[in-house]
Design a protein around this nucleic acid. Sequence first.
DNA 1: CATGAATGAGACTTCATTCAT
DNA 2: AATGAATGAAGTCTCATTCAT
Lengths: 206, 206, 206, 206
Amino acid sequence: MQDEKLPRREREKRRHRRQMLAAALELFSKKGYHNVSMHEIAERAEFAIGTLYKFFKNKEHLYKALMMEKAAEYHHTLSGVLSREGDVLTILKDYISAKAGIFADDVATLRLYFAETRGASFNIKAGLDQDIRKLYDELVEQLASTLEKGIRKNVLRDLNPYYMAVALEGITNAFLFCWLEDPERHSYKANAPVISDMFLKGVMAE
Amino acid sequence: MQDEKLPRREREKRRHRRQMLAAALELFSKKGYHNVSMHEIAERAEFAIGTLYKFFKNKEHLYKALMMEKAAEYHHTLSGVLSREGDVLTILKDYISAKAGIFADDVATLRLYFAETRGASFNIKAGLDQDIRKLYDELVEQLASTLEKGIRKNVLRDLNPYYMAVALEGITNAFLFCWLEDPERHSYKANAPVISDMFLKGVMAE
Amino acid sequence: MQDEKLPRREREKRRHRRQMLAAALELFSKKGYHNVSMHEIAERAEFAIGTLYKFFKNKEHLYKALMMEKAAEYHHTLSGVLSREGDVLTILKDYISAKAGIFADDVATLRLYFAETRGASFNIKAGLDQDIRKLYDELVEQLASTLEKGIRKNVLRDLNPYYMAVALEGITNAFLFCWLEDPERHSYKANAPVISDMFLKGVMAE
Amino acid sequence: MQDEKLPRREREKRRHRRQMLAAALELFSKKGYHNVSMHEIAERAEFAIGTLYKFFKNKEHLYKALMMEKAAEYHHTLSGVLSREGDVLTILKDYISAKAGIFADDVATLRLYFAETRGASFNIKAGLDQDIRKLYDELVEQLASTLEKGIRKNVLRDLNPYYMAVALEGITNAFLFCWLEDPERHSYKANAPVISDMFLKGVMAE
DNA sequence: CATGAATGAGACTTCATTCAT
DNA sequence: AATGAATGAAGTCTCATTCAT
């Protein structure tokens, strides 16, 4: 992350890599993996096609690199929220809100994220997308742990914590999806309290 | 739907069409739109490539025909459940259960359904997939109407009914997705009561 | 070989295949495997590139099909000469002459043949060219058998028959090569008696 | 050849050049001209690609430089043998033996040598390979002169000396090729007397 | 309607070569 | 000289679609 102390050459290389990934993100997100050509990405990034291939072995690797970097950021943030000390209800509310912040200025990533984790992904050959899915599964497990803690403390009802996590993910993603489809009408951020309300009321112990 | 009174020629034609769609469904569901070729579909359906094109203008139209037929069935069933007379809570429970029955023996369709409605779909050029999305939106609206009725009858809390519908869809789809990913571990059908419980507790008036 | 009784469609297909192989032979022979593009071959054969790929899985397979068909013809002819009844010296003279006839009107094949069997071949990936080399080895073995017969009949000196075969191949190929390089100055056909003379005198029993 | 009296800079330059040629020889010989990239050569030689291009104008020139140096060595040695004083038969036997020594520890060169002189070479564009071929032709001519001398001295039969040379080259190369293909089974060196025997018996005057 | 050979645009990828540092 | 990032022409191959039979 810290490029500061690197030699100029290395810094430039990283910058170029970022430019390529940015171009790829924009295009993949708008048109989908199979409707974007490597030439298109190279052109958008203002590099020659050969340069693109110097940085990424092939289209799949470029795509995967893109997804993994974004997924890592995403999961790092949410995982951080879930790791906080404090009462479970606050953590859950924060988690719901945090999802808003993450994608607030990066709709492109959100779109791809859905394509990979919710839609049945057919973009990359079997095996390559396993890593991304695995990262996502880990987050759900962590969420389940948090919920389990809530159960033990009698804050939450004694339901299967994994399925509670699945439900929470389902709701939040549904709202994110709404927002993605029509950002004008459906603000996820504004709806975060509604989500918290509905979900928590459904799972809280009385 | 009723082919009985049609001349033999017409009946055969419909049968052929069904065979082609069945082959397409199987392949699209397994490998994704872009990883299936028209030749592959023709071969699987045991027709010549030219015949496939006699029935469907092009690959997109074939895909859309497939999706629309499946979506129509799906929404017809769920719409039927929501149109029933009776108390709202029962209707909602039935709705949740009904989703299990629909896909129980048709995982292939479920997979494609997600690719289109939950993941950001990049399969078919803008405009063509609007019809499918529209059908889905109608169902959500109908669900919202049902929920609104529940609110008016003081059975449900006074929350935005559209967002309640979004939440319910989010939860049920999340569970369907779980089941799709690992049918052995996560039975949607068995979990339907859990879903109903969590969701209804969250939205019911006290 | 007999296309006569085949349906028209099938006959045409074979003709097209032959046209493609002919175009490939001409180009490969003139410019070498790596200096000929599939587009070039398609164009020369007056077919679209896609059609070429309908007939041959890829460039290597096209090349191999070409080589194998030619090699089969070639070895069939020479093998026939070696299988004849009669005295060994006559058979050997005929063998030497026969090599002239084979390539007389097909310099292109001869050139490729050398590239594969005499030059160290780097054209096709390891394994694919084994078949061609094997065919050639079989011929040398058969030649050795013939020579062995001559030894047993005391017509030839008691030398290692395999190495005698190698020597004979070496001489004949060297003359073929001369002719290939400069057909005007060095006629293989005219030199066949010279070859026979030199070689036989070297290996004949007194 | 003598680098001793040169300034250090010059000596280093020559050493670098040799390293590059050695890397190229190894790779070309193993994989063939078209299956080796300039990057690969640079990497093997442990230089940057740009440095490679400082020494050799382009891939063809690199290849040609390699071939010419090896060919020059080769022909210098054999030419030396043919220039010796003494009786023709001894010279010829020595010539046949000498071919063994030359390639004994340099199979790589032998492989390339065949690719260029025996197989129809398609490696380098027309014109560039003429020099190598010319060098080879000169050697054959010199061999023919030697043979002619033998004829004049009534040691050899009165055959066309050029064709006798061609035949000798054919035989020796065939044995070299045998050895190249399977060094374990076919030792050229051990077979040198066999070659001499067969060839000389075929061409000697009685 | 059925067939399937033919088409060719366009995708992915490699690699010889250049040039600023 | 040495470096190696950047270039882009050119090659291989796929596949949606057409059309003559």
